[in-house]
Design a protein around this nucleic acid. Structure first.
Length: 718
DNA sequence: ATAGACATTCTTTTT
DNA sequence: GAATGTCTAT
């Protein structure tokens, strides 16, 4: 059968496995996605199952899409109706179908992480809880952590008062969500898990339906996801789990590699298939990756090999500063481009998003086109979130998070005072803020009624096709006018137009056909889409641009050339990881993932000094560099060694003249006395940045030491 | 009620 | 360096 052509023996064994539980340990670049999709295609093509009988779960929308695209290419089937998707996407589908049984309103809305955070802040405020003692972020982490283990408040073990209080808050948070008809990400999972475990008929239905359950990136599943999979697999279906323990890099958000061992044991997996032949990288790169990961103790064990040649050595570069590093990368890229490398085949990877700035700056000045992945997503931009909040209120006026977001944006004379009154009224009536509007009297009440009328007006056009509805909402809400008046609002205006486009293409791609209700089903689907797929909705997709991203988001991708920058202690491995349990091992796996992204050439660089959080840091080279065998390495020295001069380090021993030169453009110099309206007299002890970014550290004596932005702080010279 | 000035805080990774 | 929060002047 030609589907199976070109598979190696292990891949073939995995693809054609009989209907039994299986664990596939798939190393980086070993053709994991191919195995997964070919297996589905093979099972269908050989009539072992119908397309309806498969459940395939991935972590990212990208992976799900790719799977569907490949399947379409292999088989003449319509993948639209198949249960292939992310955990969250599939749970959403489940809950939309069985909303009543799940105890949810039909039009429940999904909170993304930032919505969740503001919901928590609102909760703490309404309960008068000290947010110093219970930081919202920390509480969010706590709540999600419990949910990801499948624990409702009543099931959480709390021994100390602090935890008890947090559990209480968890309970109150859940109550608030229920009242408002919203669910957060982890709730999607937990809610559908509970739905299926409590409702026997429903569980049977799905267990009988799915004969094959396939899971991608199994090493990234958390406890709840594993339980969810177990439930759906039931007694009859066979679970096919593909994963790589060496690429487990999401423990920080609850992923539990232990699931791989548990799965093997609990499902009595008879044979574990290892895919160890790598089709991606040259030998040296693979050897380096193997050497690095060998330093981890907790491994299931596996060694990648390739029959491609050794290839090029790994190039290591030490820069004086982060700026230097960026400029060096630019020079190398220019040289690569001259040799005919496509820019899109070159990736710049870094550990944390903050590091992209310097690189972007250097690329921009050099006129090299680039594309940054991650960072601010389209649906996370404030103007988009505002527009979506209006749309959500149309669907569900009880969504207080959305309500609070836009009740006074654009400003319409409803201040903090009125909102507070409204919140009190809502609490007294145990209703949503929207429902409590009528009970607020006075001027504030009139304004609020006006807002309610505005939402009402939007509802009147809700039957229109989605793109038109969005357009009306953008206009009626006053968002368009507001950003038009804002001199820096042009980008935001463009994004709002882009939202209308997004609605158009959403309808074209996955529009619900013929839905003619008072509220379009398209709207609900679109809102879910916006929350679940924050979206790679970025320009420049097709261009030949350099690829910039974090090492995390590079997982699953590959490039001919990879630059791995900022390989410094404290940065990579990240300093926070050193105090976390098994943190260093996770960092090392991340390094392993990063290295194995490269096909032909790998650069590794680090800098002696780096600006971070507005401070200069002096970092040692990362321990991971030392873990690469010397025989695989070529150390590079700058071609024009002295041309990238770094400013001299400031030390007390240096003569005053050194300071004078640094200070020239800010108008201040070190040692100068200044007066601040509030802090009084002080002495400049350090200067930093230039132009509008210039800052000064000033010692105000008894008042203390302050860093002030010179463009903002009004300083008098004395 | 609102806008703007300013300080403080918090920085890993993200479905 | 950003994003958020707080304070002050209008």
């Amino acid at each position: 059968m030609n589907l199976l052509n070109g598979l190696n023996p292990e891949q073939l064994a995995a693809v054609t496995l009989p209907r039994q539980h299986a664990l596939i340990l798939a190393g980086a670049g070993s053709g994991k996605t191919r195995v997964l999709t070919t297996r589905i295609a093979w099972l269908i093509a050989t009539n072992q199952m119908t397309p309806q009988q498969v459940l395939a779960v991935t972590f990212t929308n990208k992976a799900a899409k790719e799977m569907m695209a490949r399947l379409t290419a292999m088989l003449p089937i319509n993948v639209r109706g198949m249960w292939i998707g992310t955990f969250h996407g599939l749970c959403n589908r489940l809950l939309r179908t069985h909303y009543r049984d799940a105890g949810l309103p039909q039009l429940f809305q999904i909170l993304d992480s930032s919505d969740q955070l503001s919901a928590i802040k609102r909760l703490l405020k309404s309960l008068n809880v000290d947010d110093e003692k219970y930081p919202p972020r920390e509480l969010q982490h706590f709540i999600n952590g419990q949910k990801e283990q499948g624990l409702r408040p009543s099931a959480v073990e709390a021994w100390d008062g602090y935890t008890k209080k947090r559990v209480e808050l968890y309970e109150a948070y859940d109550a608030q969500c229920n009242k408002e008809g919203v669910v957060d990400f982890s709730e999607l999972l937990l809610r559908s898990y509970e739905l299926l475990s409590r409702n026997e008929a429903l569980r049977r239905h799905y267990q009988e339906r799915f004969r094959y359950v396939l899971v991608d990136e199994f090493q990234d599943t958390n406890v709840l996801q594993y339980k969810w999979l177990k439930l759906l697999t039931g007694e009859e279906a066979a679970m096919f789990a593909v994963g790589d323990d060496d690429q487990s890099i999401y423990a920080f958000r609850g992923a539990d590699v232990g699931n791989m061992r548990d799965f093997e044991r609990e499902f009595k997996v008879a044979n574990v298939i290892r895919l160890e032949q790598n089709y991606r990288s040259h030998g040296n790169i693979l050897d380096a990756a193997n050497a690095i990961i060998k330093n981890n103790d907790n491994r299931l064990g596996k060694n990648l090999w390739t029959d491609a040649g050794a290839g090029e050595p790994i190039r290591i570069f030490e820069a004086n500063s982060d700026l230097d590093e960026a400029r060096w990368i630019v020079e190398e890229i220019k040289a690569l481009a001259r040799d005919g490398h496509a820019r899109a085949e070159i990736a710049l990877l870094y550990r944390s998003n903050a590091q992209s700035r310097v690189l972007e700056h250097a690329l921009f000045s050099a006129g090299l086109p680039y594309r940054v992945y991650g960072g601010l997503r389209f649906f996370e931009r404030q103007e988009i979130k505002h527009a979506l909040a209006y749309l959500r209120l149309i669907a569900n006026p009880d969504d207080d998070t959305s309500f609070a977001r836009v009740v006074n944006f654009p400003t319409r004379g409803i201040g903090a005072r009125s909102v507070e009154q409204l919140q009190d009224a809502a609490r007294a009536a145990a209703s949503s803020m929207f429902a409590a509007i009528r009970s607020v009297a006075g001027a504030g009440g009139t304004k609020l009624a006006g807002f309610a009328a505005l939402i009402g007006k939007m509802k009147e056009v809700a039957h229109l096709p989605l793109p038109e509805l969005v357009e009306h909402v953008v206009d009626l809400s006053g968002l368009r006018e507001h950003y038009k008046a804002d001199k820096e609002g042009q980008d935001r205006l463009a994004n709002l137009d882009e939202l209308i486009n997004a609605a158009t293409s959403f309808i074209a791609e996955e529009g619900v056909v013929g839905a003619e209700g008072e509220l379009s089903a398209d709207l609900i689907a679109f809102l879910a889409h916006a929350a679940l797929e924050a979206g790679e909705h970025q320009a420049g997709e097709g261009d030949d641009a350099l690829q910039l991203m974090t090492t995390h988001s590079a997982k699953g991708l590959e490039f001919n050339v990879v630059f791995l920058s900022g390989l410094e202690e404290g940065l990579f491995p990240h300093e926070n990881s050193l105090v976390e349990r098994d943190g260093l091992e996770e960092e090392r796996r991340l390094m392993y993932v990063a290295v194995t992204r490269a096909r032909q050439r790998l650069y590794v660089s680090h800098a002696q000094t780096r600006m971070l959080h507005g401070q200069t840091r002096y970092n040692l080279p990362s321990r991971f560099i030392a873990e690469i065998p010397a025989g695989l390495v070529k150390r590079l020295t700058p071609k024009v060694a002295k041309s990238f001069g770094v400013p001299p380090r400031l030390t007390l021993e240096q003569p005053r003249a050194a300071y004078a030169s640094r200070s020239s453009d800010s108008g201040y110099c070190i040692g100068q006395t200044v007066r601040h309206a509030k802090f009084g007299e002080g002495v400049v002890i350090n200067l930093d940045g230039s132009g509008s970014d210039a800052r000064a550290q000033i010692n105000f004596g008894a008042v203390g030491m302050k860093w002030l932005a010179l463009s903002i702080a009004k300083l008098e010279t004395v």
